[in-house]
Design a protein around this nucleic acid. Sequence first.
DNA 1: TAGAATCCTTGATGTAGGTTAAGAAAGCGC
DNA 2: GCGCTTTCTTAACCTACATCAAGGATTCTA
Lengths: 196, 196
Amino acid sequence: MPTDKTAILKIAFEKQAPLTEEEWIEIRSYLKERTFKKGAFLCRNGQVEHYLSIIYEGTCRGFYNNKEGEEISVGFMFPNDFVSAYYSFLTQRPSLMAVQAVTPVTIISISHTHLNRLCDKYKSAERIGRLNAERIYRRKEEREIALLTMSATERYQDLVDRNPQLLQEISLKHIASYLGIKPESLSRIRKQLAKQ
Amino acid sequence: MPTDKTAILKIAFEKQAPLTEEEWIEIRSYLKERTFKKGAFLCRNGQVEHYLSIIYEGTCRGFYNNKEGEEISVGFMFPNDFVSAYYSFLTQRPSLMAVQAVTPVTIISISHTHLNRLCDKYKSAERIGRLNAERIYRRKEEREIALLTMSATERYQDLVDRNPQLLQEISLKHIASYLGIKPESLSRIRKQLAKQ
DNA sequence: TAGAATCCTTGATGTAGGTTAAGAAAGCGC
DNA sequence: GCGCTTTCTTAACCTACATCAAGGATTCTA
């Protein structure tokens, strides 16, 4: 095997619980490398998300459509981040969220069926699943606080500070919707910040 | 035993994974009934949350303090709901969130130590923990969408529709902070809605 | 590389919700 | 029950962000 891309998943999993050699061999047998062109959908609105994946290379964006049909971004995912229409993955019901490749993307995926099989068989898989759910819950809670207590300007600065690669890869339009404002407003905010 | 209040926890857990008699007996041995007077704190800002609890009777409120020292409510919990400063409970670091009894409250609690012991011992406990984390994650995601796409008026109506008991028990001041607006604004919104 | 589409910016104006202030109503302690 | 505090409401004014409109910069795509 030339380069073993699955290693990033092993590393990510083992941050949460150690894996035996046996477990890892079984997990690895389920993993699938998938690639997407820029603009392609990992999961569309209305589809059931079958995979939990980790990004080997590229950038993804998750978004919802509001009643007016506008896209509301809710997250940007970079290499070594997990990516999935997680709500749909958990419930196995059609997804309200879409996930799109912002650049050409390579991911390592495991299917819901295989992951459930692992959870039934190994306690460590169950634990990884629990810790992972807890981790993304905490992130959502931080986001809730940010939306309730920070101004759009503060949220923008915070987002850029945490994700240096963001401005290179994500359009301002998508960043604006993530911040909960319109592109025109983000433009004005950036102008204000540049002055100082 | 007069009335077995722990039954509500068994019911809540078994919604997520069946428990053997052996498991339930061990779980029950760890459970603790706790009562709080109106206004008392289940967990204060700065304390580590040691318990995951279920409400037997009464109503609780979770809130943060923003930089200005104002209380920002992030959730209201009623009988049969789980209650915890969950982020702190998961991380065992000091909590940024406080949890307060809005009425006199009786809860059934299990400590972090005991719950971890159960998770080490029983796969079903690990599974309940995973499904529980996934459940509260989904709720936060719904809230994120509401904050990003709905007006304060819509969020208010939605909140009241989902929680009929809310207006009887929670002050408008706290509801306003949950909606992300000031009490004066909520007052205006309610006046508008009453007209129609 | 031209043409089309999309994205970004800027300006004028509109609006939801914030701020300040003050009085009315409700809850609470003695 | 009678003050005292907190909550709720209303009104006048203010601000952050939205909307609408248009021009310029990028980027697709043929």
